[in-house]
């Protein structure tokens, strides 16, 4: 893992605005995100303050529409908050151009989605090498091999995603997220599409990263068993922090979650809370419809 901050003191740029705060992997301060939509402004995040220390594994949970994914996106620099400050890898994100944000992410952040993580026309090895190539580097063969071996997939470098199972695809995605040796790893429901054995392996990998590599791991999940593998669980409801639980176990986590869900149901009996939840003007979103139907079928 690379250390990249040059000094331990906060720095300000030419205009006196804070630009870097070393030794802070991820921190959010009063971050809010409001979307414009046809039905009026939608508040996904309503002022969240949190910080994540190095070498920790944090789970973020909450009912549907609580803003978990939005929190992750803002923290990772994938989305710009409407107000508030985000510090990522010791750098203040406000005012950075798209290109600078991208460069920062490339060096310090790994991101794993729930699905559609890999480019279908590249082999597993080429997918893993992608961040390095984008940075203009030619990766060494053993570098890729080591990355794949770390997720238990050595020997699969030449396979296309279509030839791998869902769990294997997810592991390739994790290998890609880790190949640059990032300080911070964000994972958005990484085990949602996996069977329990694969999910278990992925969580163990994340756990190892936090413990042995001092990475900062932030994971969004809805599965209490997965959340229990983390050091602490942050609960979100209606775009705000609604509690924290240290040293979680599955039963307690499930109870807290159920309580939050019930409360949310009482407060707003209907009405969407984020653009993802809005009914699209034409057709329902493809994956969403499929998931809904899948739920009914299963």
């Amino acid at each position: 893992m690379r250390q990249s901050f040059s000094s331990a003191m906060p720095e300000t740029g030419d205009t006196g605005v804070l630009t870097s705060v070393p030794q802070t992997p991820v921190a959010l301060h009063a971050v809010a995100r409001v979307y414009r939509s046809k039905a009026g402004p939608v508040t996904a995040l309503a002022g969240v303050t949190a910080s994540f220390a190095a070498g920790t594994f944090t789970a973020v949970m909450g009912p549907s529409g609580s803003g978990k994914s939005t929190l992750l996106h803002c923290a990772a620099g994938l989305d710009r908050p409407t107000s508030g400050e985000v510090i990522l890898a010791g750098t203040v994100l406000r005012g950075l151009s798209e290109t600078k944000l991208t460069l920062l992410r490339r060096r310090h952040v790994g991101f794993v989605f729930q699905s559609f993580n890999l480019l279908p026309y590249l082999t597993a090895g080429q997918n893993v090498a992608l961040p390095l190539r984008l940075a203009g580097r030619r990766p060494r063969r053993d570098e890729i091999g080591a990355a794949l071996a770390a997720v238990g997939l050595d020997g699969r470098a030449g396979h296309r995603p279509a030839e791998l199972s869902g769990g294997q695809q997810q592991r390739v995605a994790i290998a890609r997220a880790l190949v640059t040796g990032p300080q911070v790893i964000f994972a958005d429901e990484p085990t949602g599409m996996l069977d329990s054995a694969s999910g278990h392996e992925v969580l163990s990998l994340l756990r190892r990263l936090a413990d042995q590599q001092q990475a900062t791991v932030v994971m969004v999940t809805h599965d209490p068993a997965a959340a229990a593998r983390a050091d602490r669980v942050l609960f979100l409801a209606d775009g705000r922090l609604a509690g924290e639980l240290a040293d979680p176990d599955p039963r307690t986590v499930a109870d807290r979650l159920a309580g939050l869900t019930a409360d949310a149901g009482l407060r707003t009996p209907d009405g969407p809370r984020s653009p993802d939840e809005q009914p699209a003007g034409g057709w329902p979103a493809q994956g969403r419809a499929a998931r809904g139907l899948a739920g009914a079928v299963r």
């Binding site: 290109t99 490339r106 559609f116 480019l119 961040p131 984008l134 940075a135 890609r176 640059t180």
Partner: peptide, 11 residues
């Protein structure tokens, strides 16, 4: 996906 993986707008 490319953007999150680290591709700049120019790329």
């Amino acid at each position: 996906l490319l953007r999150t993986t680290g591709a700049t707008p120019r790329q």
